[in-house]
Write a protein that binds this DNA or RNA. Structure first.
Length: 561
RNA sequence: CUGCCCGUAGCACAAUGGAUAAUGCGUUGGACUCCGACUCCAAAGACUGCCGGUUCGACCCCGGCCGGGCAGGCCA
């Protein structure tokens, strides 16, 4: 894996350390330990390609002004044999490093050489990660929050793969417990209504049209024979009929959304194979439980939660948190994933301390559970907020949303912002086919490059892959574009570390921007050989990176639009 | 009442504690006889919610207010 930026940063560090060593030897700097310093890429190009704050951070230790330290470092730095041609001292004492021309040519060739592997890193070192996301309730259709979770979870998983982790995607199916009872009740009442029973739907039952449809479908299949059976039999039959249809529906919708899971993990398996009981025993053994008023409690307060939690109700039925704990125990211990990542809506944030407490009680390192919290999405149409309500059945479902906006736009838009920000999804913008719409802006850059290369080919000009010393980049638009290409591995590392796939869309938009500017100011057609080939190589490199990242997002990279 | 998240330009939002607070939309004005104008260039627009603190340096860290969202069940 080639990472020209990491290399350069390393070089900066070495040059600075050696320079300080020499300055100390000459008595220009005191022999004090050097505090950790940072090397970064400045926003302002006049501040060089790499900037180092070593002089700033060591001012205190050296008892000198940052500026004089910086001058001492600069005076003792040796640049021969490095990628750099110049150092400047600037501002309060920054050391700004400027790379030589050769570095840009190397970067372009490195991208082309690595091709579909360019940008990949080995941060993960093959660690096993399980990303669980969406996990929508199978008692009804998916809503808009699931759409955001789907896009974020799937792209985060891809990003982690890109960063060298082994990743599996998982959907947790809540096919047991109270939700299912409620589902059964709702189906039952609709079924009976269908055959004329005058029963009312209670407040907390499901009122959606989907329940009615299921009841009617069931009635068509079995007629009224279940009217005469016991309530228990009837409900079981109804659930056995409707639940698989729903799960299949979820699967289909998610496939349309280009999401393919490794595993659909069913909650019921945890009840059936004794895991739930086992967890209760383990928790009891841990000493963090006690009985009170007939219920079994978890002393989670002692492990960082803000209150104790009930594990088994006085009626003997475990609360939902027991199978949940069993599930996470299963991920981390039974299936031995190194890291479990949950993508959760903000309304579940209270659940994190509880789960961490439980893992700690079970002697599992709770930092192996990572949680990405997503804030709520607000849909905006014609400048107005689209109201969502699950109860009334008016919620915009994932399926409806995807009927309305292109798949590419949905996946891209939901990854436009940090998960943990409230975010307005502009339905009008998502369908708009213009530069206002970032998806098209990025895709257009790719299509444009394809056309340029094709056109050149038609005229008999091929990209010849010149050696580093034959490529020449002098225009600022070229330099900016290359600099951006070079930064990809860093972006991948950063995004993986912060579990933040939105770095990808941000990077792509900037890349497209740099490319369009380059296109505008740097003609290719008819230029002399060196310039022509240099620019064709640069186009090829840009195309590779656009394609790699659009693939990562599972957004199309069209050759023409 | 308590906990978590968010407050940056008209709108949507960015910035490992670093230099002139970035970008897009919208607004105003420019650029196609030329590789795709689905593009580019330029301008205007911000006392980063308020008040203190920490330090060489704060949108960022700490404390206190104000405003918005979400939670707080032997519901999931």
């Amino acid at each position: 894996m080639i990472n020209t930026i990491a290399q350069a940063k390393n070089d900066v560090k070495e040059i600075v350390m050696n320079a300080i060593g020499r300055a100390v030897a000459e008595g220009k700097l005191p022999a004090e330990p050097i505090p950790a310093f940072a090397i970064e890429i400045p926003n302002d190009k006049s501040h060089g390609d790499f900037s180092c704050n070593a002089a700033l951070v060591s001012a205190k230790a050296f008892k000198q002004s940052p500026k004089s330290i910086a001058e001492a470092i600069k005076g003792n730095a040796i640049l021969e044999g490095s990628a750099f041609e110049k150092i400047e001292v600037a501002g309060p004492g920054f050391l700004n490093f400027f790379v030589g021309k050769a570095w840009f040519a190397e970067t372009v060739n490195a991208v082309i050489g690595e091709n579909e592997n360019y940008g990949k890193t080995n941060d993960g070192k093959g660690k096993r990660v399980l990303v669980e996301f969406v996990s929508a309730n199978p008692t009804g259709p998916m809503h808009i929050g699931n759409a955001r979770g789907g896009a974020i979870g799937d792209c985060l998983a891809s990003l982690l793969e890109y960063a060298g982790y082994y990743v599996e995607r998982e959907f947790y199916v809540n096919d047991a417990g109270n939700q299912i009872n409620k589902f059964a009740l709702s189906l039952d009442l609709r079924y009976r209504q269908h055959f004329g029973d005058n029963v009312e739907m209670p407040e907390d039952s499901y009122h959606g049209q989907d329940i009615i449809d299921h009841a009617e479908g069931f009635a068509k299949l079995y007629g009224d024979i279940y009217m005469n059976k016991t309530e228990e039999e009837r409900r079981k039959a109804l659930v056995d009929y409707a639940l698989p249809i729903n799960i299949k529906g979820l699967e289909n919708d998610l496939l349309k959304y280009r999401i393919r899971y490794n595993t659909w993990f069913r909650e019921s398996t945890l009840h059936n194979d004794g895991s739930v009981k086992e967890i209760i025993e383990l928790l009891k053994k841990s000493g963090y439980t006690y009985e009170q008023e007939g219920a079994l409690w978890f002393r989670s307060t002692e492990l960082g939660d803000d209150k104790d939690r009930v594990l088994i109700r006085a009626n003997g039925v475990p609360t939902y948190s027991v199978p949940d704990i069993a599930y996470h125990y299963n991920k981390l211990m039974k299936r031995s994933f190194d890291i479990a990542i949950d993508i959760l809506g903000a309304d579940h944030h209270g659940y994190i301390p509880r789960m961490r407490a439980a893992l700690t009680a079970l002697s599992v390192d709770s930092s192996r559970l990572e949680v990405v919290i997503m804030q709520m999405v607000r849909l905006v149409r014609n400048g107005e907020t689209v109201k969502l309500s699950k109860r009334s059945g008016k919620a915009i479902t994932l399926a409806t949303l995807l009927d309305e906006i292109p798949m590419d736009a949905a996946r891209f838009f939901f990854n436009l912002r940090d998960a943990n920000t409230h975010f307005d999804f502009d339905l009008d913008l998502a369908v708009e086919e213009s530069s206002k719409n970032p998806v098209y802006y990025v895709q257009y850059a790719h299509a444009r490059i394809c056309r340029i290369l094709e056109k050149q080919k038609e005229e008999g000009v091929e990209c010849k892959r010149f050696a580093d010393n034959r490529l020449v980049y002098t225009e600022s638009a070229e330099i900016e574009l290359i600099r951006h290409l070079a930064s990809l591995p860093e972006i991948i590392s950063e995004g993986a570390k912060e579990l933040n796939p939105s770095v990808i869309t941000k990077y792509l938009i900037e890349l497209a921007q740099h490319f369009h500017k380059f296109y505008d100011s740097c003609p290719i057609k008819g230029m002399e050989e060196t310039v022509l080939q240099s620019r064709l190589s640069l186009c090829t490199a840009a195309k590779i990176v656009l394609k790699n990242l659009l693939d990562l997002l599972k957004v199309e990279a069209p050759e023409k639009m």
